[in-house]
Design a binder for these strands. Structure first.
Length: 424
RNA sequence: GGACAGGUGGCCGAGUGGCUUAAGGCGCACGCCUGGAAAGCGUGUGGUGGGGCAACUCACUCGCGGGUUCGAAUCCCGCCCUGUCCGCCA
């Protein structure tokens, strides 16, 4: 969310960012509405507050006269009149304020200077690690997984629906191994605090990280309560300190959480439906960082490296892609996607998305810190990234490490947790 | 799910319609005192929004949202959360 003052002080920046997001045309009416509402709001506040000041003075005088046993009927009548006018203006003000909230909640974040202009086609691969295996002769992961008895997609579809996975035997154990390896690495080597959080959250949390109000159709909602299944641990974890003021010494602070993630994928029917490529429920380890505005750029690189290290330990070839302005998510100011090579399907699969949100989420979730005792609170910056998302990593593991006899080697880092070196 | 008791500033805690612009204490900051410290004394100490270059000033803020009233921390209604007991339950 932007500061309300964006409509007075940062209009050029706002319009330029929306242009780079390729949304200026569709958002111009919204921006114009914001400008008008802001100016109406301030005029109304001035009117209502001067009336309130008069009302307060009047009430004080009534009190004084009553104590002095004097008559105050004329003042009480005057107060009644002021009160009526206040009520009318306050109604108008409430309408203006909720209008402004509506506008602010629907405007995406500014984007950073260095993003390429353009849409998805302008995304820029910044580096590639490892040697992508030739696609020829490699079977897709769903065949490998089924043959090895690790994956049971038909039964997943039966008990929940298409896009829900059943892992079996060493497949199930592999999921558990990844939870441990990923979380342990972030805790022991990267200094994150491990947290275990609810995966059902309230509306305020979903609004704090920007899933609501704009993307309601992407998530699962409970029927009897105003609560939602999280699409990512970003939601509960970023909201941990919602409406709090942190000490400066607390920053920077990293959190790591494993959670299942639930996504309706309403807009992606028919895309990437095979195997583990796009599913409604999946497991993910998420890393979230809180920091000061001064350090967020460096923190973004740090966080992204924390995700990359896991891919390197797993020995999976990957590339880092800087998303163009037009492909960058609603709340993000800058995003690097990490994509892993899956030779069986012949595609680079997004296994992590590492973003800096600048103060956008912090303002929505009211996450602040006090730079020094006695100073005014400031909004923090928030960042997050997958570290990592399981199903696509499993797909890449199965395809990349597939051997000619149909068995699959297991990277050394997973072996102690999994108990075997080869799946056969 | 039911019954009862609660929710006041960084913390404790008073306050049942107007001498409360939230008493008092603790903590914290600064000053006085001191050779230095402690104690003591004094002053200050939240957040949001509006106006103003600023000093400053106005409004709002006693869990949240409505209502009654000239005036609400205080009265009424709804909700949320916490505690205790009961019921149910992995």
């Amino acid at each position: 969310m932007h500061d309300l003052r964006v409509f007075r002080d940062q209009l050029d920046q706002l319009r330029d960012a929306m242009r780079r997001r390729q949304k200026l045309d569709s958002l111009t009416p919204l921006i114009d509405r914001g400008i008008q509402l802001d100016s109406d709001r301030r005029a109304t506040i001035q009117a209502v507050e001067s009336l309130k000041a008069a009302r307060n003075a009047n009430a004080q005088e009534v009190a004084r006269r009553k104590r002095a046993k004097e008559d105050a009927d004329d003042l009480i009548a005057a107060g009644r009149d002021i009160g009526g006018r206040v009520a009318t203006l306050e109604e108008q003000l409430a309408i203006l304020e909720s209008g402004i909230q509506g506008v602010l909640l629907e405007l995406p974040n500014l984007v950073l200077e260095e993003l390429p202009d353009g849409g998805e086609e302008a995304n820029r691969v910044e580096k590639t690690w490892g040697d992508p295996r030739e696609a020829a002769g490699v079977r897709p992961h769903w065949e490998i997984g089924e043959t090895l008895g690790m994956l049971d997609l038909p039964r997943g579809a039966k008990i929940a629906g298409s896009g829900f996975i059943v892992f079996r035997g060493l497949g199930a154990r592999l999921v558990r191994a990844m939870m441990n390896v990923f979380v342990d690495t972030h805790v022991r080597e990267h200094g994150y605090e491990e947290v275990w959080v609810p995966v059902v959250v309230n509306r305020a949390s979903m609004t704090g990280t920007s899933q609501l109000p704009k993307f309601a159709e992407d998530m699962y909602a409970l029927r009897d309560e105003d609560m939602f299944l999280v699409p990512t641990a970003e939601v509960p974890v970023t909201n941990l300190y919602r409406d709090e003021i942190m000490d400066a010494a607390f920053l920077p602070h990293g959190f790591v959480a494993y959670t299942p993630c639930f996504r309706r994928e309403a807009g992606s029917a028919g895309k990437d439906t095979r195997g583990l490529l796009r599913v409604h429920e999946f497991d993910k380890v998420e890393i979230v960082r809180y920091c000061t505005p001064e350090t967020s750029s460096a923190e973004h690189e740090t966080l992204t490296r924390h995700a990359e290290v896991l891919l390197e330990r797993l020995g999976l070839p990957y590339r880092r892609t800087l998303l163009a302005a037009g492909d960058t998510g609603f709340a993000s100011a800058k995003t690097w996607d990490l994509e892993c090579w899956a030779p069986g399907v012949g595609k680079w699969l997004e296994v992590s998305s590492c973003s800096t949100f600048t103060d956008f989420q912090a303002r929505r979730a009211n996450l602040r810190y006090r730079p020094a005792p006695g100073e005014k609170p400031r909004f923090i910056h928030t960042l997050n990234g997958s570290g990592l998302a399981f199903p696509r990593v499993i797909a890449c593991l199965l395809e990349h490490y597939q051997q000619s006899d149909g068995s699959v080697r297991i990277p050394e880092i997973l072996q102690p947790y999994l108990g075997v070196a080869v799946l056969r």
